[in-house]
Structures are given as C-alpha cells and as structure tokens.
Amino acid sequence: MTRLALSAALALALVLALLLGAAGPALADEAPPEPPATTEFRSAPEPAANDFEALLASCDQKLTRCEKENGVGYLGAAYIAIWVILLVFFVATRMKQARLVAEMQELRARLAKLTEERAG
C-alpha cells in the first residue's frame, strides 16, 4: 500500500507538473480573472419555444459560454480520472485480498498436516 501511495504521490506530482507546464502559455497571454468570492450555482433558464426574444437571448448566452470556454473536455477528463482511480484502487485491493486468502488457505493446510503428523 505504501508503495501504492508513493507511486500515487509521484503520479500526482507528475500530473501537476504537466498541468502547470500546459498552463504556462495560457498564463502568459492573460492573467487569470479574479474568481468571485462567493458563487451561486443557478441553472440556465430554458425559454419557451414561442418566446422569440428569450430564445435569442438564451442562444446568445450559450454562444458566449461556448466562446469563453470549451470545458466539456475537462469535464470528461475529470470524470474519467475519478473512475480510473477508484477502479484501480478497488480492483487492486480485491486482487491482493484474493491472493492473501489463497495464501492463508495453503498455510492452514500445511499447519493442519503438521499438527496431524505430530499427533500421529
């Protein structure tokens, strides 16, 4: 497990370094905007089909969102990362456990044989 933790830490450092390296050019063009102190998450309104003006406004909003950030790639990367990490950890634990159970059974068999020999 500690080896796992170590390699995980190294991997994290690597990922961070890569991310920071990738961020370098982006940082050079423009300073990061100050994020707001408090954020409220609100859903985007879905306009009624007959309200033409609202529809236009919503399209406009969506367009600026698209121009500003194409965040879907990051979203996908984040969820893939979450699932890969969780699955690897889970499967690794399960496999190691199965190996240990087998080892334990073998040991128990040897122990039983030995005690039998001693008795007999």
Partner: peptide, 26 residues
C-alpha cells in the same frame, strides 16, 4: 489510505475545473 485516495481525486479534479472556470490550473 481512503482519505489519501479521495484527496488525490480532489487534487486532480480541482485543476481540471479551475482551468475552464478561472482560466488557470492552479
């Protein structure tokens, strides 16, 4: 162990969210 595992997830998803939202990874 589980705390470190989820901490790693937070540290990986955090920059991935910060990049499009704040235009910086860190």
């Amino acid at each position: 162990e589980v705390g470190v595992l989820f901490g790693l997830i937070v540290l990986i998803t955090g920059p991935l969210w910060a990049k499009p939202a704040w235009n910086t990874f860190w």
